[in-house]
Nucleic acid binder design. Structure first.
Lengths: 233, 233
DNA sequence: TGTGACATAAAAGTCGTACTTTTTGTTCCC
DNA sequence: GGGAACAAAAAGTACGACTTTTATGTCACA
């Protein structure tokens, strides 16, 4: 699951982005546009456009007479969904998942509290529906179905918070949940406790119970962090 | 304070980014590369590179036979520091500041808690120094000096949290603080209560008091939100 | 021997043009 | 009226020439 369909630009960008995010091409390594053009068998035009995009993500820096230098991790736009995808597909997926899960544990409780205040009846209904969907798929190896409802659930909460920055974290959360489901050992059905917590969270939001919504979301986050500690090295 | 120095690419990118972020060029408006090249008096090459970057930020989408379409706000990479700068410089600075401040109020308490756990002695020392700097500049219209220390303070806390995603929010916080100082009515010296809170937060981190660090940071955030409610429409 | 001015070349930046590919709107035929 | 062939518009790609910046090596001078 790299990105989208055809297109020279897309292919080169994706390949390079992945290589840099994965740690091949360590920081400090310099690439030359001519070489890249030759390597991918595309025109310098295409390479330059790719480099410009990579540069806007601060994955590389382009300087005259020196070339395209790979930047250290601290410079990267780690909130760019594209960068997140590349990193999750790369080697330090585990560390990345942990960072993102901690981020979730900070954001989502607050978002849930705001959602309890501001959620529309439609959003409450959708939330309950998702929770029921999670219950229905929580047994019998229906992991894909469960994941789908889980993602939708969290997305609704973030949207219902009414805060744009929170809402736009839906994609990140989706990547994290998908990464957790796909890249880890998943013989077992999801944790029943987590399912229950989601159901109760939907209720709390519907009833406008801010404190409870916050508390439940914190518990969900703690569970997710704990799960990482158990499953990942 | 747009971006950096010379460079055709930079200039075109900055101008277009600003226009889109500010709401001129409403979503749905289509631009054509040829027209843009003509308007800025640059080659199509430059325009294409700019469009590619804008596209990677999801500010526009480029499709064959149709042109470059400005995307709706919901699609934008609102965590991209560049996008944030453009938006803060544009019309809905006020709304943007509010969103970002709410984001801060979610992240920073957790980050401060982690910092209390993980901060190195050097970081604790730097934190104390910043707090003292804030005290020293808190009276007598030394707003720029105060801002500088304030930014450094929060940056250290975020870095000391040990979480990469938090750390990378330092730039965002810096933009918010700078935006608040520069773009609002600031006859008065900073709130003395806020200064005290920062001093006590530095102490709490140094002593490893997680709960207190969290609590104090929440209070700082509440103050910041309140300040927005009072000063902004 | 060190130092500063200067020349050199390497690499990105910019441009113009020609050509390809995809997509959409239209027209024409059934 | 519906569907298929067609034409045009716009982005995508390629190539080659030229410009600009700048790291680095060189040479003269102190």
């Amino acid at each position: 699951m790299t990105t989208q369909g055809p297109g020279l630009h897309t292919h080169v960008l994706d390949t390079l982005g992945l290589e840099i995010a994965a740690g091949d091409c360590p920081p400090g390594r310099v690439l030359r546009t001519d070489e890249l053009a030759q390597r991918f068998d595309v025109s310098r035009t295409v390479v330059r456009e790719v480099v410009r995009v990579l540069e806007s993500m601060h994955l590389v820096e382009s300087r005259r007479r020196v070339g395209v230098t790979v930047q250290p991790t601290e410079a990267w736009n780690v909130y760019d969904p594209q960068v997140i995808r590349w990193r999750l597909a790369g080697t330090d997926r585990s560390r990345q998942l942990r960072s993102l899960t901690v981020l979730r544990s900070a954001i989502e409780p607050v978002a849930a509290g705001l959602a309890a205040r501001h959620a529309t009846p439609e959003q409450c209904a959708a939330l309950t529906e998702c929770a029921l969907g999670m219950v229905a798929t929580s047994r019998g190896q229906q992991l894909e179905g469960y994941l789908e409802h889980d993602i939708a659930f969290h997305r609704i909460v973030l949207n219902a918070s009414g805060n744009e920055m929170f809402a736009r974290l839906g994609d990140v959360v989706a990547e994290v949940l998908a990464g957790r489901t796909h890249h880890q050992v998943m013989f077992e059905d999801p944790d029943p406790a987590a399912v229950t917590l989601h159901v109760r969270l939907a209720e709390a939001v519907r009833e406008g119970d801010v404190a409870e919504a916050e508390r439940l979301t914190k518990e969900i986050a703690v569970g997710a962090l704990h799960e990482l500690d158990v499953l990942a090295p």
